[in-house]
Write a protein that binds this DNA or RNA. Structure first.
Lengths: 231, 231
DNA sequence: ACCATGCTGTCAAATTCTGTCAGCAGCGAT
DNA sequence: ATCGCTGCTGACAGAATTTGACAGCATGGT
């Protein structure tokens, strides 16, 4: 069986992820142990399968951030869990993440045979409609800052209505029943603080990285709060 | 590119799903337009890729219920949505569905390169811990009854504490912030009724199908309640 | 203008896939 | 026990596909 080819394509994706800058086709060909001509064919294959690879003459290839899943089998419970979870995200999260949930569902539905697609459309697992929120915070920007480990300038109104400005190192976002909370290290208080996103007056990314790494902060915060690691 | 082969494997899965009973390899070979020898090789390929296909001598092949996804690409937002959604399900749904969510996450994590797997483990999107519930209802059984369109014998305690017994046709399950609600047609009241699962004293499947189809009931209920169809 | 690079066509060699034939093993019915 | 049906594996030759080498064109940056 030609398992070699599909595995080579997976390897190719990994190699492209390693380089964060554009890589030349010649380099990729060498790393995957294949001729340049074949590499071009492999790239074309991946693109045909939906991989977001951009190639520019004179520069090389870059893989847009994302995840290529190989073929895999999900049980009925697993797919129901994914569908229900995505629906919850679609309703409860900010517009961009919600759009991601909808897109993911559509991608999955698109590859299912008609009979099973209908099963999803008629899925019997429903999620409550979200409440009206007065939460205009830009969660997408906050998520981006978290991913990039960028410091944020925050104007925040605490429980007592007092307004403060701080610089914080955001590293997590919590979704509770009715509120969303940004978790970060607060330079002002020199400690971990939780910020309800509906009380954030404004958040501006400084574009500068904070000095510690996100997983370390997360771990330390978990220990400080006595929160077990999620499954 | 040998897109022919992988497509044939997808077709093979669909054909196997059509037959709910065991199918002989010869039949499958004829349906996919391939020799019997090659069919055996195709089956082996699918099994190697994780498909749950069982073959028994003298009977044929059966595909265990589930969904085989072809290789596909998810954007960062999409995968974050899937992860967050699965975490929510893992915490908020009944044990079986929660296990499905955990399993699905593990399957996805298992095929990601180490660096991205860590990304999921350190995911910055958190879900609130579930509240303590006094909800001992067997949601897994209810979901099963919904899928099979089976009638349920229900002992239910309504808001006023009055205890009733009814036969209902369950067709949906709603997840709200703090309560879960089974939706069904109530034979006693001759109308759609919502049953909070924590007020269900006992639910016994009759094993008999109800006379109407689930999608029709769902649609009618949506119209009656003024609920738009979910994305 | 020049170089690095992406991209496509062509064709023969290398590789893989497929069909045919053969044989063994497990299961149910006669 | 025997038979038929079926799953499953090995071997091998021909068919089909993939690969590599070569040639050429297009594009962007220097």
């Amino acid at each position: 069986m030609t398992v070699a080819r599909s595995e080579r394509l997976l390897v190719l994706l990994q190699v492209m992820r390693r380089y964060r800058q554009p890589v030349s086709g010649a380099t990729l060909a060498a790393e995957t142990g294949v001729s340049l001509r074949t590499l071009y064919r492999d790239i074309a294959s991946l693109q045909a399968q939906g991989a977001l690879i951009e190639g520019e003459a004179g520069l090389g290839y870059v893989l847009k951030p994302g995840f290529m899943l190989p073929p895999m089998m999900f049980s009925q419970e697993e797919i129901e869990a994914l569908v229900l979870g995505s629906r919850w995200v679609a309703k409860m999260a900010d517009p961009i993440l919600a759009a991601g949930a909808v897109d993911a569902l559509q991608k999955i539905a698109a590859v299912l045979p008609a009979e099973l697609k209908e099963e999803i459309d008629n899925s019997t697992l429903l999620v409550a409609a979200p409440r009206n929120r007065e939460d205009r915070s830009d969660l997408a920007m906050i998520r981006k800052a978290i991913r990039a480990e960028h410091m944020l300038h925050l104007a925040y109104e605490d429980e007592r209505g007092a307004l403060t400005e701080r610089r914080v190192w955001p590293f997590a976002l919590g979704f509770f029943d009715s509120v969303r909370v940004m978790v970060g290290w607060c330079e002002l208080r020199q400690g971990f603080r939780h910020f309800r996103t509906d009380r954030i007056i404004s958040a501006v990314s400084t574009g500068k990285r904070y000095p510690r790494r996100r997983p370390a902060l997360l771990k330390e915060w978990r220990r400080a709060e006595g929160i077990p690691t999620p499954g």
